[in-house]
Simulated assay, not measured.
Amino acid sequence: MGVKHGREYEHILKELTDAVGRIPDSYLFFEMEADEWARLGGEERAEVQEALAEDLFYALGEEPVIPVGSGVVIHDRNHYRIDVLIGEEELTFVSLV
Rank of each mutant, 00 (worst) to 15 (best):
V20W: 01
E47K: 15
K14T: 14
T17C: 03
W37A: 04
S70T: 12
L60R: 04
E62Y: 10
G69T: 04
R81C: 05
Q49T: 03
T17N: 01
E62V: 10
R39C: 08
E8V: 12
T92R: 07
A59Y: 08
E54P: 02
D83Q: 14
V3E: 03
G69R: 03
P67V: 06
E63W: 07
E36P: 05
Y58M: 08
E63Y: 09
L96M: 05
F57M: 02
E89V: 14
L96D: 01
L52E: 00
D83E: 15
E54C: 08
E31G: 10
S26I: 06
G42D: 13
Y27E: 01
V73T: 02
A51V: 09
A53L: 04
E63M: 11
L60F: 01
L40P: 03
G6T: 10
L60K: 04
E47R: 15
V97L: 13
L56P: 01
I23A: 06
D18K: 14
E10P: 02
T17S: 11
Y80H: 15
P67T: 07
V68K: 03
L60E: 03
H75M: 06
A46V: 05
Y58D: 11
H11E: 15
L52P: 00
V68L: 07
G6P: 03
E50R: 15
V84N: 07
L13G: 00
L40H: 04
A34I: 10
V73L: 06
I12E: 00
V68S: 06
L28Y: 08
R45M: 08
R81M: 06
I82Q: 02
G21W: 01
E50N: 10
E90W: 04
I66F: 06
F29A: 10
L13S: 01
H79R: 15
A53Q: 01
S70R: 15
H79A: 15
Y9P: 00
H75F: 14
V94L: 02
G2R: 14
S26D: 05
W37Y: 10
H5S: 07
A59N: 11
A34C: 05
T92N: 08
D25G: 08
E15L: 01
E90K: 15
P67A: 08
E89P: 04
Y27A: 02
E89Y: 09
E50F: 01
L96H: 03
Y27P: 00
V3W: 00
R81N: 03
E8S: 13
V94M: 01
D35T: 15
G41K: 04
D18G: 09
H79Q: 15
E88N: 13
H5W: 06
V97T: 12
V94T: 02
G41D: 09
S26C: 14
E31A: 13
E36K: 10
F30Q: 07
M1R: 10
A59I: 06
L13K: 05
E89S: 14
G6F: 09
A19Y: 00
V3M: 05
S95P: 05
L16W: 00
K14G: 07
A38S: 12
Y27V: 01
A19E: 00
F29E: 02
P64F: 05
I66Q: 04
E8Y: 10
V20H: 01
K4Q: 11
G6L: 12
E63L: 11
